[in-house]
Simulated assay, not measured.
Amino acid sequence: MQILMCALLGYFFGNINPAFIIAKFKGFDIRERGSGNAGASNTVITIGKKAGLLVALFDIFKAVVASTLAAYLFPHIKFAKILSGSCCILGHIFPVLMKFHGGKGLASLGGTILAFNPLTFVLLLLFEIVLGFSIDYVCVVPVTGSIIFTLIYAFITGDPVGTTILSVVDLVILYKHIENFKRIQNGTEAHISFLWKKEQEIARIKKNTND
């Protein structure tokens, strides 16, 4: 029962989606514009950088709160932080309050890592920043980040249950980014440089879409 409550706690926090809420205040459904996802990157595309930053910080914070609160409420569950954080990620991706169509879980993954170990978060963040800007695609970050964190968690803790939970999250995140990798092949996936070359990126994507 405690394990179930721990999981539901994380899933509840994951259902709180600031991208969807902000877009609704702007008069539209964010899932019907841009990339179609209710997350920080699509908020940048459809609303702007400031709103995107706010969404990213909120999604990180909700995973930190879910993980930390779970560890406090269920101290006897060794993997409480990872279970609640993982369910927060899944709640963000598949929110029942949004008919299971949410975001892709990058920021909430970051929050889960931060709650587990701040140093791991900082080092992995620096690595992913270098990797992301080198390849110039955001989608590589959550996929590689989730896999690397799972390996780090397994090495540090030796916890098979938590590692299995994270491995399931890895598969879900990979599945959610299949379309991104297809768009990379087609030349229609937005580069990270969209942040400072918006008009050029939009023109490039439109051209490749028409071709």
Rank of each mutant, 00 (worst) to 15 (best):
F116D: 06
T163F: 09
L97F: 14
V172Y: 12
Q185M: 13
L131M: 13
L119K: 09
T46N: 12
F79W: 12
F79L: 03
Y11W: 14
G132N: 06
L195K: 05
L57I: 09
L171V: 12
K49S: 08
V140I: 15
E179K: 14
S41L: 11
L53N: 01
F155Y: 15
A190R: 15
L54Y: 09
D170H: 04
N208S: 12
I89K: 01
A19L: 07
V122I: 15
R33G: 02
K99V: 03
P142L: 04
L124E: 03
M1L: 09
L119H: 03
C139F: 08
Q2R: 11
R183I: 03
I202E: 13
A23N: 08
E32K: 15
N42P: 08
T157G: 10
I205N: 10
F94L: 11
S67K: 00
E189D: 10
W196V: 06
I93E: 06
A107S: 15
P160K: 11
V44P: 02
L4V: 13
L131D: 04
I21D: 03
G105Q: 09
I184P: 06
G162P: 06
L57M: 11
K50H: 08
A80K: 03
A107W: 03
G145T: 07
D211C: 06
V161T: 12
F127Q: 08
F133H: 14
I21T: 13
K49G: 06
M5P: 00
Q2H: 12
F116T: 01
G52N: 09
C139S: 15
L109S: 13
H191F: 13
V122C: 14
K206L: 11
Y137E: 05
D29A: 10
A70I: 04
G36A: 08
A115M: 02
I30P: 08
I205F: 08
V55Y: 02
K81C: 07
P18L: 15
L57T: 01
Y153W: 05
